[in-house]
Design a protein around this nucleic acid. Structure first.
Lengths: 254, 254
DNA sequence: TAGTGGTCTAGACCACTGT
DNA sequence: CAGTGGTCTAGACCACTAA
């Protein structure tokens, strides 16, 4: 029985083995394509197919003119969705209302966010979660791009039914305080959240806005907030790159 | 200023546009590589680079001898981690103890799982979560591959400190009841869970065990269960393919 | 400027799918 | 069987990086 795997599979397997065994360490440069051609007696395209396999697995990263390197892990930002947005935390928070920013600042890193506010029709799935007619409903949309140490970390888009928040400070673009806080000040109190998480490859647009390296999936975290009567007040859609985030929950068994 | 994007970017953008606009519908066959070469006056490799971009985004799927097709969405299985493993659900569950199986069966699909039990050293991160010495500690490991309608859906590996579960039914391979249940019968009651979710591209091994299509990320859900005194009793690591799963949580604001 | 990876061409043969 | 995508070769030129 001869080996039936394609040549570039075997080249990739061999290099992956070197990485797994630690012969090639994170951050270390791989042999150049030219060297690999010689080592494996293969054409350049075949070598490149093998390297492509490894970059697709997130093991290798390469740059024009620089070479190929074993990929380093990021320092992940931990998002604890059981704690984030809790009112007790919010009240004790000193930096003007944004909880995300204070959590990041506590860890010694520098938060920044760009906010854009508009009024428009929500996407169909958001309308459904808010219990609105997708044809006619309008929502106030707050789109934020969140940066840590000047690098983009996440997209966070919040949707509020327009009729609920008319005339509140929410509609001023310069307001960057936590929506939970602003909502509460307007008498709209969220007592329960329904969170849904999906994960997939980024679209081209997300990839560019977040400056994502190849082979980086995103999680889409959709939080719907309800008031005491079970009426939905807000939907927040957060897009988190996989190489920079860990999502955490605490759950009490019943 | 002329557009300087590479040719295969523009070919990919053009085809992506046709898909986004609905000119090409899910399940529909794309033009053959030969036809695309003619349409865009490009070499075959260039056309293939463009198609590769689209398969990397999860938009297109291709098969040798069959052609390339616009990818269809899966029907996702919803995993509600607030409810799963709750004791109240467990007690009212009629099918012999496995909650996952009953949740799936309720939705009219056919669950099946392959279980393998062994005793061995845990990975370092699991040892740390269990508060064990990574050099010497032994754990009972239950590795399951879960299928729905004969297709692999998830990997679920549970780790128990060996000293805690010695002599319990947990160690019998044929036992497939929910670990929460078995633990409880041994007087080990989990009152709190810490869940952590990361998401990344699958390793080769995961990709093969789960028969994953290209461009399918996985979420790794790690649940650590604690008893009343805060002692860790169990770690469960679930590997979920992104094209078949939605993770859900309910959270009460405090 | 030398060396790297990125883009692109023009072929060839193979493996697999359908008819 | 004809037609598809998968693998592979042997070149060429370009864009970028670092010395």
């Amino acid at each position: 029985m001869a080996e039936q795997k394609p040549r570039y599979y075997r080249i990739a397997d061999e290099i992956r083995g070197r990485i797994d065994r630690g012969d090639l360490e994170p951050g270390q440069q791989l042999p150049t394509e030219h060297e690999l051609m010689a080592q494996y007696e293969a054409s350049r395209n075949t070598v490149r197919l093998a390297l492509r396999r490894l970059t697709d697995e997130g093991l290798v990263i390469s740059g024009q003119g620089r070479g190929s390197y074993v990929r380093r892990a990021h320092v992940p930002a931990v998002w604890d969705w059981s704690v984030l947005e809790s009112r007790s935390r919010h009240e004790s928070n000193t930096n003007g209302g944004d909880q995300w920013a204070s959590v990041v600042a506590e860890s010694g890193r520098e938060p920044r966010q760009e906010v854009r506010v508009s009024i428009r029709q929500p996407p169909a799935d958001v309308a459904e979660r808010l219990g609105l007619d997708p044809e006619t409903a309008m929502t106030v949309v707050r789109e934020r791009v969140r940066f840590i140490d000047q690098e983009p970390y996440a997209l966070a888009d919040s949707y509020f039914p327009e009729e609920l928040v008319r005339g509140t400070p929410l509609m001023k673009p310069e307001d960057v305080s936590a929506p939970g806080g602003v909502l509460a000040q307007s008498g709209l109190i969220q007592v329960r959240y329904e969170d849904e998480i999906t994960f997939r490859m980024p679209t081209r647009a997300e990839s560019e806005r977040l400056d994502l390296p190849p082979a980086t999936p995103v999680a889409v975290h959709t939080r719907t907030g309800y008031d005491k009567g079970g009426k939905p007040l807000r939907v927040m859609v957060t897009t988190l790159p996989g190489d920079r985030h860990v999502i955490r929950y605490s759950v009490l068994a019943d």
